[in-house]
Structures are given as C-alpha cells and as structure tokens.
C-alpha cells in the first residue's frame, strides 16, 4: 500500500516499526520454564500462587518443556552434577530466550563455595538478570520479570543473542 494514501483508512492503521510491535507482544506473554532445584523454587511457588500472582505481568503460562518456553528462571542451587542438565535445557529453548538467575546460589554459588556447587550459572549459560536474595522475595522475582520486559523492548526482535558467549560446558 502506498503510504501516502493512509488517510483513506482513517485511524484504523498505525505505522510503526516491526520490532516495536513484536516486542510489545512478547513483553506481556513471556512463557517461563522454571528450573527449580532448591529453596528458591518454593519462593517461586509463592510468586505463582494467588497472593503475588505472576499472571498480572503476563508470565503465568509456566511451561515444563523447554521447547515451549522463552524465559528460563533458574531458581535454586545448581550443582556440578546438575550443570549438564541445565545446559541441555537452555539449548533446547528456541530463540529468542532470556534467563533469570534467581537467588544467591544461581547467581554466584551463594554460600556453597565448595566442591559441589557451580559458582554461578553464568559459567554454563548466559544470564540476563540476576536477583539478589537467599531466597529473593516474590516481589524481587516479579521485578526481575519486569526487567526482562524492559530489556527485550530494546532488542532487535529477530536477532540471535549471546553469539559470543562461551560457557564451561560448550564444546566438551
């Protein structure tokens, strides 16, 4: 359609950028996959329950198959034994995808600075938002979801992210 003729359609058409439309849609329909391993997962349950109600922010469609999800919430300690599982799940998620490291353990290993625990999941997968707390309160997790929403608005909608990221388990 010739753009000079848009007046014929009155106000039924708005011109905008493709990125803006796609991201506007994505923002309120993030589908989280919860990689819940420990105590933080209990606080995730609270976030999903009716008091805090994550669905107010369009993120309640919890998927338990990574192939359906675009937001990975790592809630809990990730041990070395668990690491290849986390990586596999991340790899199975289609682009575009975002990752929240919920809690001290997922972010840095927390106070498990020992032989068992991965010192932060960013050794294995790229992380978009880190949430402090042990465990973080539900409000903090909701804030992280809002952060992801803000972040994705600034992104190119059809680009593959983190192409330069190299995790410890890549190519082994």
């Amino acid at each position: 359609m010739d753009l000079s003729n848009t007046h014929l359609l009155d106000e039924a058409v708005v011109t905008t950028k493709l990125d803006a439309v796609v991201n506007w849609g994505r923002e309120a329909s993030l589908w989280p996959f919860v990689f819940g391993t420990a105590c933080c997962a209990i606080e995730f349950m609270a976030t999903a329950a009716s008091r805090y109600d994550i669905s107010r922010f369009g993120s309640e469609v919890l998927r338990f198959s990574p192939r359906h999800a675009d937001l990975l919430v790592v809630a809990g300690t990730v041990s070395h034994k668990q690491a290849p599982i986390l990586k596999q799940i991340y790899d199975q998620m289609p682009e575009p995808k975002w990752v929240i490291a919920m809690g001290a353990c997922a972010s840095t290993g927390g106070f498990y600075d020992n032989y068992t625990t991965l010192q932060g999941i960013d050794e294995i997968v790229p992380v978009d938002v880190y949430v402090a707390g042990c465990p973080p309160r539900p409000e903090a997790l909701i804030d992280a979801v809002l952060d992801i929403q803000r972040k994705l608005k600034r992104e190119k909608s059809f680009s593959v992210k983190h192409t330069d990221y190299k995790g410890k388990l890549d190519d082994v």
């Binding site: 070395h80 034994k81 690491a83 290849p84 600075d113 020992n114 032989y115 068992t116 625990t117 410890k168 388990l169 082994v172």
Partner: peptide
C-alpha cells in the same frame, strides 16, 4: 557426587573447594 568426580570429599585431606566439572 557425579561420576566424573575424583576423590572422596569428606576425607580430611580433601580440599573443600576442589570441584570437578561434570559434562
């Protein structure tokens, strides 16, 4: 511990931070 782990961590001569990646 995972199958790629080396050593026995609760032995007193095992260093607490001596981790092994599991692939």
């Amino acid at each position: 511990n995972h199958e790629e782990f080396i050593g026995h961590p609760l032995r007193k001569d095992y260093d607490i931070r001596d981790a092994h990646y599991c692939t």
